[in-house]
């Protein structure tokens, strides 16, 4: 399979990337590692007329300790997240989850910014940044703005980014509650999660439980009002409409969410 024809433009700087995106408008897509976008283009599920390659912008690839938070450049690859000692120490949830994405070849190419901007409800990192209450930094023609992760995911493959806006940095506060867990239920190695759960303290992000990555707010509220883990986890699918597909029915996903949230909260508590 080969993608439909498009024009390839390579940006040499963030400014040039934003300028090129502005020039081509809605016809253009940013290309980072390409491991979400290129497969969609090969299947004709995406058909941008222009790709603006931002893969060479090395100044967007970093992991920095900023005191109360860790700043991660949007072009930092999953491989770099999974091998970072700073993350292993400060954000073990992100460190571990990044190492479970795809396979080594995918992790050599895929980036945190690409994964978040793609806003796939089946992606692992959206649920992780939700549980970590990260802030996403986007740059556009009129400057930078900060978007809380909880306001970033808007719908199926839809984020709060405006056309032409580039995700540049992910700021993750160092969690006060240290216990964490990442539960990913797959049928085979390298599969997407049928359901996944990211837990940091008593914050819970859900993978593949609806049109967009979400927090398990009903569980969080139950925990806050003193419910046991076992009782709180029963609310994992409350108000959510997971998809039925070839991998699992909606009922199966709801049951998985209840089980995995319980396991995740128990593991996080044991680690706290």
């Amino acid at each position: 399979m080969i993608p439909a024809t498009f024009t390839y433009r390579r940006a040499e700087s963030v400014d040039e990337a934003i300028e090129l995106a502005g020039q081509y408008g809605e016809d253009a897509k940013f290309l980072a590692g390409g491991h979400s976008l290129l497969p969609l283009m090969k299947l004709r599920l995406a058909q941008p007329e222009v790709l603006v390659d931002i893969g060479r912008l090395r100044d967007l690839s970093y992991i920095r300790d900023q005191g109360d938070h860790v700043a991660i450049g949007a072009l930092t690859r999953h491989h770099d997240l999974a091998t970072s000692e700073l993350l292993a120490e400060q954000l073990p949830l992100l460190h571990h989850a990044a190492g479970t994405i795809g396979d080594p070849q995918v992790r050599h190419r895929g980036t945190i910014g690409g994964s978040l901007a793609h806003a796939d409800p089946a992606g692992d990192l959206p649920a992780v940044v939700l549980a970590l209450e990260a802030t996403l930094v986007a740059r556009g023609p009129s400057g930078s703005r900060e978007i809380p992760a909880t306001e970033f995911f808007r719908g199926l493959f839809e984020s709060a980014l405006e056309p032409g806006e580039l995700l540049t940095e992910i700021r993750v506060p160092k969690p006060a509650a240290r216990g964490w867990s990442f539960q990913k239920f797959t049928k085979r190695a390298i599969d997407w999660a049928i359901v996944g759960v990211a837990v940091q303290g008593d914050r819970i992000g859900l993978v593949n439980m609806g049109e967009k990555p979400v927090r398990a707010t009903a569980v969080e509220q139950a925990l806050a009002s003193g419910a046991s883990i076992r009782d709180a986890a029963e609310h994992a699918a409350d108000g959510l409409s997971p998809a039925s597909d070839v991998h699992a029915s909606a009922e199966y996903r709801a049951q998985l969410a209840r089980v995995l949230v319980r396991r995740g909260l128990e593991e996080a508590r044991a680690r706290a």
């Binding site: 390579r10 290309l31 491991h35 090969k42 795809g102 070849q105 050599h108 190419r109």
Partner: peptide, 26 residues
């Protein structure tokens, strides 16, 4: 041809990648 099987794995700057999901331009 869908980034799954790994038959097309090559090294790009010394690291394994699946060459069916990398543009020559990249």
């Amino acid at each position: 041809d869908t980034t799954t099987c790994g038959a097309c794995t090559v090294l790009l700057d010394g690291e394994a990648v699946k060459s069916c999901t990398v543009l020559a331009a990249q």
